[in-house]
Amino acid sequence: MTKAGDEEELDRKRTRHIDEPLGARLRLMREDRGMTQAELAQKLGISANQWGRHESGENRVPAARLWQFCKTMNVEVSEVYDGLPASIVLQQPQPGMKDGSEAVFVGPPRIGHPLVQRIGSAARKLPEARQRTLLAVIRALRDEDAN
Rank of each mutant, 00 (worst) to 15 (best):
M97C: 02
E58A: 13
D99Y: 06
R130G: 02
Q37L: 13
I111V: 14
S78P: 00
I138A: 15
R25G: 01
P62T: 01
K13M: 12
R12H: 04
E58R: 10
G57N: 05
P62V: 00
A129C: 13
V61R: 02
Q91W: 05
R139L: 15
F69V: 02
R12P: 00
H113C: 10
L40A: 12
N147G: 14
A123S: 10
A48S: 14
G120R: 04
Q68V: 00
V75D: 03
I18P: 01
A140G: 13
G52F: 02
P114N: 04
G96A: 08
Q117L: 12
E79M: 05
T133P: 05
Q92N: 06
E102H: 09
E55V: 06
P21D: 09
V104L: 08
G120C: 09
T15C: 04
A38P: 03
S56W: 11
M29H: 06
G52C: 08
I46K: 00
G34E: 05
A64W: 05
E7F: 07
P109K: 08
D99H: 11
I138L: 15
T72G: 00
D99S: 12
R60C: 09
R53G: 09
Q92Y: 08
M73E: 06
A86W: 14
M29Y: 04
E9C: 00
R33V: 04
D99Q: 10
I119E: 02
